[in-house]
Design a protein around this nucleic acid. Structure first.
Length: 566
RNA sequence: GGCGGGGUAGCUCAGUUGGUUAGAGCGGUGGAAUCAUAAUCCAUGUGUCGGGAGUUCGAAUCUCCCCCUCGCUACCA
């Protein structure tokens, strides 16, 4: 048994998560955490909301709220949504917590002490009417290259050229529309990444065998281009005030304290039960901790370069990422998810339409691992109807109903294994082996495809053995077949648990069992598992596990969630 | 503009030490079965592997050029 530290990229508090966010880091991290627990590892799985930065301030102002209250409100919305999706965080914290402040201050002090912090003056746009500095992106104007009148200060979306906000014609504040702007000089603190480059490069190189190509190549690209000092402070109110003389009126840049949030949140977790929890066991001079991070592809540079460099610069022995899972994006009905255009399914709504497991299964079976992947309601309904209802749900139903009506609602007597049974067991052993291998390698699509194949084998087995025919001439053999089928159902529940925890519980409950007692995959032996149910054990057929999605419902959903391209 | 990912069957996607007839699931078609949720099982694929050129006995795979698409480009996060 080893210690597995799992983190999901911290969702930004301002805005509600959609399916793309769910599959981009939250769900895969949960499936992985659940799987690793089932393998008997000690798992710490933390996440939380990333709260600092301009968008929070602007969002709060728009709602006429205090920034802290605003963040708490949205933090709670995130928390509720993830709970509804059954994300099994050990702790869901906040980057604005006192614990994170403490960590951020400590790490900054270490960096400063070690000579990795320097002052630089930079010029930035100040909006007099908004009474605030504007990040480049918050300045809008006409693109000097193509004349597009809604170009942002960092890049023109129309011609894709990279811009400086001062290049814009007729610049205005994106927040208020005010044109009353001026360039002001302001002092900031920079992390001297060039000094850490060598050390960082060596560290990245040591990770080459373990990181996926995408992550490794992105990190290499940054190193190849040469690291520049990175500004880690901002002229904002909302954030941790900088703990250095002369900079007290500034706050740390959100990307400085956000990844430190993984540590801060762990401390939040530990502080709730200090007798039994120790954050250092996971993060500082930690032994035997295997750290796996999940994030969208856009987050890779921060997790492979800035954050590790920050930790290296402290001179202390912080736990750094071992495996970095970068996910691509999910598209929605051929386009992008867009809150402003009301296109796409958001987590809060998704859960009102269908049980979490429908989404969890579909999203993981179609996870954007190698490249972007597409969500459409047709695909979703197809999978729910075929895989969940047809293959898994119907198997459970046909086996239980047949047993109940022909023999009674008890697990019938097992018999001597025949060749067809032995083959089933051998296949099961092999496929579970593959499933586990894929899970361990974080190849979710492959893992789920294997899981599905295991379900298919059950249907295959029953149609080959034909217990409904056999029972007329050889009731004992029919009982033995059904015994095997019922045991398969139990095994399917256990195997499905990381992906579909509710369904797993539901299935086991039919046998009066629960996942707490039996959800283990350690040293899986098909031979033993196929005999796990006690003969004579009562079961209840109960209601169907899943419901089909009717064609009319699909059309309704498409209309409701803006499938039509605008 | 630069860098990186992706472009494979009607649809969604697998597929690198270069190697026999390029794969899976879905959908379609045909059949079987009647235990089950009109569910299941079996059979069924002549695809310009984005386009062009090259290396090679041999290229989806390696090299070069081009096209489309997504992302990043250090001040959105």
């Amino acid at each position: 048994m080893s210690k597995i530290l799992v983190t999901s990229a911290l969702p930004y508090v301002n805005g509600v998560p959609h399916l793309g966010h769910m599959v981009g880091c939250l769900l895969p991290s949960d499936v992985y955490a659940r799987y690793m627990r089932m393998m008997g590892h000690e798992v710490l799985y933390v996440c939380g909301t990333d709260e600092h930065g301009t968008p929070s301030e602007v969002g709060a102002a728009k709602e006429g709220m205090d920034v802290g209250d605003y963040c708490l409100k949205y933090h709670n919305r995130h928390k509720e949504a993830y709970k509804a999706f059954n994300l099994s965080f050990d702790y869901f914290g906040r980057t604005s917590s006192d614990q994170n402040k403490e960590m951020t201050y400590h790490i900054f002090e270490q960096l400063d002490k070690n000579g990795f912090i320097e002052e630089q003056s930079i010029k930035q746009i100040f909006s007099i009417d908004d009474n605030r500095f504007l990040p480049d992106r918050y300045v809008t104007g006409t693109c000097p290259h193509c004349g597009y009148d809604k170009a942002r200060g960092d890049q023109c979306e129309n011609c894709t050229k990279v811009l400086e906000p001062t290049e814009l014609i007729n610049p205005r504040s994106t927040i208020s529309g005010s044109t009353n702007l001026e360039v002001r000089e302001t002092k900031h603190l920079f992390l001297k990444l060039p000094l850490l480059e060598e050390k960082l490069a060596a560290w990245v190189k040591s990770k080459e065998p373990f990181w996926p190509d995408v992550a490794y190549s992105i990190a290499q690209k940054w190193l190849k281009e040469g690291l520049k000092p990175r500004c880690i402070t901002r002229d904002l109110k909302w954030g941790f005030p900088v703990n250095k003389k002369g900079f007290e009126d500034k706050v740390f840049y959100v990307w400085f304290d956000a990844p430190i949030g993984y540590i801060g949140i762990t401390k939040q977790w530990a502080d709730e039960n200090p007798q039994n929890r120790n954050w250092k066991e996971w993060w500082l001079d930690a032994k035997d901790v295997h750290y796996v991070q999940f994030m969208g592809k856009d987050n890779v540079p921060f997790h492979s370069i800035s954050f590790p460099a920050t930790l290296l610069g402290t001179g202390e022995n912080w736990t750094k990422v071992d495996y970095l899972k970068g996910m691509s994006y999910l598209t929605f009905e051929g386009g992008k998810f867009s809150k402003s255009e009301n296109r796409g399914v958001f987590a809060e709504d998704a859960i009102k339409e269908f049980p979490a497991d429908y989404w969890r299964y579909w999203l993981m079976a179609n996870a954007p691992e190698a490249s972007d992947s597409s969500f459409t309601f047709d695909l979703f309904a197809g999978t729910v109807n075929k895989d969940l209802n047809g293959v898994l749900g119907n198997f459970v139903s046909r086996v239980m109903k047949m047993t109940a009506s022909k023999i009674g609602s008890v697990v019938p007597q097992a018999g001597e294994l025949q060749d067809v049974d032995k083959q089933l067991i051998a296949d099961l052993q092999e496929k579970v082996g593959n499933y586990c291998k894929y899970m361990e390698n974080l190849e979710f699509k492959k893992a789920l495809s294997e899981l599905r194949a295991i379900w298919v084998d059950g249907n295959n087995y029953i149609s080959v053995t034909e217990p409904w025919t056999v029972i007329k001439t050889d009731p004992q053999r029919a009982a033995a077949i059904l015994n095997i089928c019922l045991n398969l159902i139990r095994i399917y529940a256990v195997l499905s648990y990381p992906v579909m925890p509710e369904t797993a519980e539901k299935i086991l409950a039919k046998f009066g069992l629960n996942t707490k007692e039996i959800a283990s995959l350690k040293d899986f032996s098909a031979e033993k598992e196929i005999r796990a149910l006690k003969e004579g054990q009562q079961f209840e057929v109960g209601e169907a596990l899943f419901e089909r999605i009717a064609p009319e419902k699909i059309e309704e959903l498409k209309a409701k969630y803006g499938s039509e391209k605008k």
